[in-house]
Design a protein around this nucleic acid. Structure first.
Length: 295
DNA sequence: CCCCAGGGCCATA
DNA sequence: TATGGCCATGGG
């Protein structure tokens, strides 16, 4: 078994990462304990089970399963840095929020929280389609059913670790297959259609990532059936790691702004735009901290 | 029984 | 362009 070392950046609290990964929801794609998180990763067709924990000034990534070459180790490190957003300089963001007391309070309260990514674009879009409209508990239930039936897994010390199903698998499903897992007809159609776009290379991370303007990417994604403004912004934030995403229409976001500002009702779109204006370029992080503030 | 959940599509006017 | 019904299910 090999250990990799990842230096902790400044303004970072690993406990906040763990908290967000384990907000009382039953996620099937990682396993959180009080000291670390385990996740199944795949590079070059090889599976690696990795456990990430703290080790003094560093983070330690233990490779519990899988024979990693030097090249694989590099990929694993890159993945983890991207996953927990460890290489972003948050100094200017933290300085900027100081001028806005309510938001500054959030950033003090959850100091060192970093945006947690869903690096794979198909997974990010799939998960956000699953989460549309329904409560989060049920959304996690739907994801688990899909992952356990159609995802790959490895077993380690009696526990199974899954990864999200590939579009190659989901594209061959019938709507009835997913309805059997309690998916609505629409969600089933959206997911199967989305998988088709990925295997036909009509949609991919590599096509979208080079695009400079985030709004162009959002516009492109919104052409896809089942992807609207919320889903597109969510996925672009979590996968492409753009920092200027606002998940308009997001019930969690609306409730968080309402709570933060002590409003009677949920804010309308204009109020949300106004709220985010001072934080241009960092909207995604503001959204993330607002989500954090919900429980 | 009602309404609402980290939405989006579609029909109607 | 704007509005309302619909989807599946669980919890309040």
């Amino acid at each position: 078994m090999k250990n990799l070392r990842l230096p902790k950046p400044s303004i970072f609290n690993f406990k906040e990462s763990l908290w967000f990964l384990d907000r009382g929801y039953d996620d099937c794609l990682h396993e959180v304990s009080s000291t670390g998180v385990s996740k199944l990763l795949t590079f070059n067709e090889k599976d690696f089970l990795v456990r990430l924990s703290e080790n003094g000034k560093d983070l330690k990534a233990e490779i519990l399963l899988g024979d990693a070459s030097a090249w694989d180790e590099l990929e694993i490190k890159k993945y983890l840095i991207n996953w927990l957003d460890l290489d972003r300089d948050l100094q200017s963001l933290y300085s900027r929020v100081e001028n806005f007391p309510l938001v500054a309070d959030l950033f003090r309260q959850y100091h060192g929280l970093r945006l947690i990514a869903i690096p794979d674009l198909f997974e990010a879009l799939g998960w956000s389609i699953i989460g549309q409209q329904i409560n989060l508990n049920f959304a996690y239930q739907l994801k688990r059913a899909l992952v356990e039936k159609y995802g790959v897994s490895v077993t380690h010390k009696g526990s199974r670790y899954y990864r999200f199903p590939k579009p190659e698998v989901l594209t061959h499903l019938a709507v009835s297959d997913l309805k059997a897992l309690q998916y609505s007809r629409q969600k089933a159609e959206y997911l199967i259609n989305l998988a088709g776009l990925f295997i036909n290379d009509q949609l991919s991370f590599d096509q979208l990532a080079p695009m400079e303007n985030t709004q162009d990417i959002i516009r492109e994604l919104c052409k896809v059936r089942g992807i609207g403004e919320w889903t597109a912004n969510y996925a672009v934030m979590k996968s492409l790691k753009r920092m200027d995403c606002i998940t308009y229409g997001d019930i969690g976001l609306l409730n968080a702004v309402k709570k933060l500002k002590g409003l009677e009702d949920k804010p309308n779109r204009q109020m949300v735009e106004e709220f985010f204006k001072p934080f241009a370029g960092w909207e995604s992080y503001i959204v993330f901290y607002l989500w954090r503030s919900l429980s």
